[in-house]
Write a protein that binds this DNA or RNA. Structure first.
Lengths: 185, 185
DNA sequence: CAGGTTTCGTATCGATCAATATGGATAATT
DNA sequence: AATTATCCATATTGATCGATACGAAACCTG
């Protein structure tokens, strides 16, 4: 998973995986069928072990703005762990791919779209609860938040520290309408 | 250039380039030395022909907030031209690379860093001119703006339309301190 | 303890990569 | 017009890709 995370799907060779796992080629193919299946296994593992902060943030019983704040700050921390490759596997895994790997690129795109949809769902819940003003565009802000997270992933890959990403996250938060909207009315 | 933009450095094979340019292998090597040199030529060409909006926005004699607004809206348009690959070549070219292509990945990272530095320079000029409040962090906001643009590049690659990117850009703009700061004082 | 079977590592497969050598066609010169 | 020189497309090179076939070693059974 770390190799795919660091180098992406296509640039990670079986020789690298073999050495990292200490396995012989037949052992790999017995265990994972082929490279594509192995990558998909790495994707689900990544989703289960590294992305918990997002589900936690979006499902926590807190006001909408606080949920988004936790989401962005969680990403700042998750994308810059010193012991892990920088950024997000869903972004780094196959942003650009050869025609043969289009299926992999599409799958990663689906993961990213699902993340955006989850954000939109949380924002919609917030609007229903009155956390957000009238003219608030759920889809527009979801695309903004997802975009900021993708951008943080690239900044992390370029060496941004957790403090720098936290500042970025808090700056991005300023674009959200103020929390007091409900009380002001 | 379009092939590298679409598929990235490593996933673009010489066979694809050969067919696209209608050249035979020796013609390519006579003209461009090798694949890496060809890619670097594509990078400079991209910089000269596709990224003008950024230099224009940052050098225009307008208030700081307007300059950033032009930068983000220019990116929204440049990243989603229907006749071009989505996003920015500096992001898609080699976000994740094999160890052999590390030099290429580093060069693209340098381009991204240079973009961020150009934004920081413009913000510093704005602070000197009084466009921005006292506690304003030039580096922090530059990293935010650069991150948002990188995120827009990924959203564009995932199919976002120019309208959606424009909304994202305007949302991102809301995080900037208000322009009236100077007059209020 | 011997025979048969299963398992597992090495060596290799065809395909494709980036890059180049070679042979034929064209053009220039005598 | 004959010959030489130049150029250029095809065919090929070594290396590496993902994936697999073969041979040896270990283990269980009789």
């Amino acid at each position: 998973m770390h190799l795919f995370w660091e180098h992406g799907y296509e640039a990670t060779s079986l020789a690298m995986l073999r050495e990292a796992m200490g396995l012989t080629p037949p052992q790999i193919y017995n265990a994972f069928t082929d490279k594509e299946t192995l990558f998909r296994k790495a994707l689900t593992r990544y989703h289960e072990t590294e992305i918990g902060f997002a589900l936690d943030a979006l499902s926590a019983p807190v006001p909408t703005r606080e949920a988004i704040r936790r989401l962005l700050l969680g990403a700042a921390e998750a994308y810059s762990r010193p012991s892990k490759p920088g950024g997000c596997l869903f972004v780094s895994g196959a942003l650009a791919a050869s025609p043969q790997a289009q299926a992999i690129a599409d799958e990663l795109k689906a993961y990213r779209k699902a993340s955006e949809a989850a954000i939109a769902e949380r924002l919609a819940k917030g609007r229903a609860a009155g956390d957000l003003p009238e003219g608030f565009s759920v889809e527009g802000f979801a695309k903004y938040i997802a975009g900021v997270m993708n951008g943080m992933s690239i900044q992390a890959r370029d060496g941004a520290s957790v403090e720098e990403l936290r500042i970025l996250a808090q700056t991005a938060l300023a674009a959200l309408p103020a929390e007091e909207q409900k009380r002001e009315a």
